[in-house]
């Protein structure tokens, strides 16, 4: 099958038949189920200067890092919603969020969650293995933009300038034996057709080479942020749908994740088009779960779908989908 043809302008006229097939393939491989998770922001200190991100060192946003006590409070707030899968995030800061800090946080979170994934700066294989040893089982890392020239422009300074070290990070995660690796391009930074194509090629390479790792793809569209960065390329709902369908037809088994960057109504529609994982009850602020009352102004970006876990759960059941809260059993405590 020609992935490029599925992403082409000509294929845009065939979205409905593509959707029918994508739906069939997704139900066959994943059933009528959607895995639920939520992100948890540990720290927003960052030495990078990504022009599209609120956490950029250039921006004067409030900086915060959770203490281990606060991590526990945050975990309790999230666990109370029934979620068992969590994605922890930090900015890139050797001073505030080194690997040792993340490992300590994981020790606390293990008591509350069965699956802990990380979305942090790229690490060496040894450091990934160290975090796996601490209890991490999944890695999310976006290349942001596959086009090298654009990547250089958008990451003017900081360790993130190293394109190659970031590009190879998902593979290092596979080699370190992550159970799941999730990649993606931040849509809107470049021509989405090219970026979606490279994302698919990257995912396909990993899936074929690392058979024991579950490969997933995210399709994040850029959202309003503190820097006021305007996306350079328009990615409409129609484009987003074409990307999802093309990915599903190209890789029937790949996981596809949709975040609360997208609005509620659109997310509801996307459930039937190939999505396998959704975030729910989201805050992009550091400590945003236990401290829901007041915004600390530390958010990474504005979310669009404000629904809580119960509302997402009810929506899925209403649509004939089983919300899955737990899809992995932590093997700790049994030898």
């Amino acid at each position: 099958m020609d992935f490029l043809a599925l992403l082409s302008p000509k294929a845009a006229a065939y979205l409905e038949p593509m959707a029918q097939k994508a739906h069939r393939l997704t139900v066959q491989h994943f059933g009528h189920t959607i895995l639920l998770y939520t992100p948890m922001y540990l720290s927003n200190y960052c030495t990078n200067r990504c022009v599209y991100c609120s956490f950029s060192a250039d921006h004067r946003v409030v900086r915060k890092k959770l203490t281990l006590e606060q991590v526990e409070k945050e975990a309790q707030s999230i666990a109370a919603t029934g979620l068992k899968h969590i994605l922890i995030l930090t900015g890139e800061s050797p001073e505030y969020s080194p690997v040792s800090y993340i490992a300590n946080c994981v020790q606390v979170l293990k008591e509350y969650f069965h699956s802990i994934s990380i979305e942090i700066y790229p690490l060496s294989t040894e450091d990934y293995a160290r975090l796996i040893g601490a209890g991490v089982d999944g890695l999310t890392i976006y290349q942001e933009v596959y086009d090298e020239e654009t990547y250089r422009q958008l990451h003017p300074r900081g360790p993130k300038r190293n394109y190659r070290f970031r590009l190879d990070a998902p593979e290092r995660g596979c080699q370190a034996k992550m159970r799941g690796v999730n990649i993606g391009a931040l849509l809107g930074l470049e021509d989405w057709r090219k970026e979606a194509f490279f994302t698919g090629m990257h995912a396909n390479y990993l899936q074929n080479k690392y058979l024991d790792t579950e490969i997933s793809v995210s399709i994040p569209r850029i959202r309003p942020n503190a820097g006021g960065f305007t996306p350079r390329f328009d990615v409409t709902d129609r484009h987003l749908v074409q990307i999802i369908l093309a990915l599903r037809l190209f890789m029937p088994r790949v996981g596809i994740t949709i975040s609360t960057r997208e609005r509620a109504e659109l997310r509801n529609h996307l459930v039937k088009l190939g999505i396998t994982k959704m975030s729910a009850g989201v805050s992009t602020e550091v400590g945003g779960h236990y401290n829901r009352e007041e915004s600390s102004g530390t958010g990474q970006f504005e979310i669009s779908d404000q629904r809580g876990v119960d509302e997402i759960r009810a929506m899925l059941l209403e649509m004939g989908y089983q919300p899955v809260f737990k899809d992995w059993q932590s093997l700790d405590g049994e030898n």
């Binding site: 899936q207 074929n208 058979l211 024991d212 790792t213 088994r253 059993q329 093997l331 049994e334 030898n335």
Partner: peptide, 24 residues
Amino acid sequence: RIAKLARACGCGNWVKIEVISDNK
């Protein structure tokens, strides 16, 4: 380990072993 956890959480002593290292 999974089989032992299953027995420990009251699922009985039957087990279907599935070992899959090929996600494709």
